[in-house]
C-alpha cells in the first residue's frame, strides 16, 4: 500500500518533468499517450475489474468529443462546462446501453457495443450538416497559446484525478462487488449483490471517463472525424494497450498505453508492420501471459504482499 503511494508519487513527478525534456512533437505524442492512458484505464476498470467486455470505449469517447465540440461551436458554451457536458453525454449513453444489454449474461455486451460503435460512426458521418462528418469538424482549442505545455499538464491532471477516482471506487465495497460479479456472478447474486445494478454502475463510471478523455481530445487536437476516432482497428489498439500493460491493473493500463503510443511513433519507419507487431503481441500475451507484460514484471520486482480483504472489511 505504502509502496504503491510512493510509486505513484514518483510517477507523477516524472510526468510533471516531461515537458522540460521533450520538444514540441514528442510532447504532442506524450499528450496523446496520456489520452490513451485515460481511455485504457477506463476500459481496464470495466473489463479487468468487473469482467464486462465493451468495444464502445472509443465510440463513447467520440460522443464526448462531438458533444463538447458542438456545444462550444453552436451554443458558445464555456469550454470547461462543455467538457463536462461531453463526459456526461457519454455517461448517459453508457447508462442506456447498460440498461439495454447488461440484463443479459454472455457475450451480449461485446456484440452490442461493437455494433453500437458502428452506429455512432455512421450517424456522425451521415449528419454531416451538423458534424461535418469525414470532412473534419474544426474545434476551438482549449487554450489560445500555441505551446503544448498547458495541454500536457491539463491532460496529466485529468488522468491523475480520474485514476484517483477509479482507484477509490475499486477499493471501496463497490469495487469488491465488481470483482465478485466477475469471479462468480451466480454466487454474487446469491450473496445478495444486485448484479445488474453494479454491472450498470461500473459501465456508467467507465463511460464517464471515456467521455471526459474524448472531450479533452477534441479541444486539444482541433479536428475531429468519426472515421479516425472510432474505427474498429483503433479500439483494437486500445485493447492491445490495456492487455500489454496488464488487464487487472490501472497502472498497467497507463504504462501499456504510454509504451504502445511511443513505440508506434518511434517505429514509424515500419509503416503498417508496427500494427502487425502490436496485434501479434496482443494475441500472444493473451494466450501465454494473461496478466499482461508489464504487470508480472512489476510483481516480480515488488513481490507485493497480498492483503486478504473481504466485503466485511470494506464495510467496516
Amino acid at each position: 500500500m505504502k509502496k504503491n503511494v510512493i510509486g505513484a508519487g514518483i510517477a507523477i513527478l516524472i510526468g510533471v518533468a516531461v515537458p522540460l525534456v521533450f520538444r514540441s512533437y514528442w510532447l504532442h505524442v506524450a499528450i496523446i499517450a496520456l489520452y490513451y492512458a485515460l481511455l485504457a484505464s477506463s476500459w481496464t476498470m470495466l473489463a479487468g475489474f468487473s469482467g464486462q467486455f465493451s468495444f464502445a470505449t472509443m465510440a463513447l469517447g467520440g460522443i464526448g468529443a462531438y458533444t463538447s465540440a458542438l456545444l462550444v461551436i453552436n451554443v458558445q458554451l464555456p469550454m470547461w462546462l462543455a467538457l463536462i457536458c461531453g463526459a456526461l453525454a457519454a455517461t448517459v449513453v453508457g447508462l442506456l446501453i447498460g440498461v439495454l444489454v447488461l440484463r443479459m449474461r454472455g457475450p451480449y455486451l461485446a456484440l452490442f457495443t461493437i455494433a453500437f460503435s458502428e452506429l455512432v460512426r455512421i450517424t456522425l458521418n451521415a449528419e454531416y450538416q451538423l458534424t461535418r462528418g469525414d470532412m473534419g469538424l474544426t474545434v476551438p482549442h482549449l487554450y489560445t497559446t500555441v505551446s503544448k505545455t498547458p495541454y500536457y499538464y491539463t491532460m496529466l491532471g485529468l488522468l491523475v484525478g480520474s485514476l484517483l477516482v477509479m482507484w477509490t471506487v475499486l477499493r471501496s465495497r463497490y469495487g469488491l462487488f465488481f470483482r465478485a460479479i466477475r469471479e462468480q456472478e451466480e454466487a454474487a447474486a446469491v450473496m445478495g449483490v444486485n448484479v445488474v445494478r453494479y454491472k450498470i454502475m461500473a459501465f456508467v463510471i467507465s463511460s464517464f471517463f471515456a467521455g471526459l478523455a474524448g472531450s479533452f481530445f477534441a479541444h486539444y487536437i482541433g479536428t475531429l472525424t468519426p472515421n479516425s476516432m472510432m474505427e474498429i482497428p483503433r479500439m483494437g489498439l486500445l485493447i492491445a494497450m490495456s492487455v500489454i500493460g496488464g488487464i487487472e491493473s490501472l497502472a498497467g493500463a497507463v504504462a501499456g498505453a504510454v509504451l504502445v503510443e511511443f513505440l508506434q511513433e518511434y517505429l514509424r519507419a515500419l509503416e503498417m508492420w508496427r500494427f502487425v507487431i502490436f496485434g501479434l503481441a496482443l494475441v500472444l500475451i493473451l494466450r501465454f501471459s494473461q496478466n499482461g507484460l508489464i504487470y508480472p514484471i512489476y510483481q516480480r520486482f515488488a513481490a507485493r504482499r497480498v492483503e486478504p480483504r473481504t466485503v466485511a472489511d470494506a464495510e467496516a
Binding site: 454472455g106 457475450p107 483494437g236 496485434g279 494475441v283 493473451l286
Partner: peptide
Amino acid sequence: AVERKDEYAILITFGLGIFFQNLAMS
C-alpha cells in the same frame, strides 16, 4: 488452462481479428 473463459474467448478472437486486418494491410 484458461481461468475466465468468456473473457478470454472475446479478447482472443477480437485480437486475432485485429492481427489479421493489419497483416492483410501489410
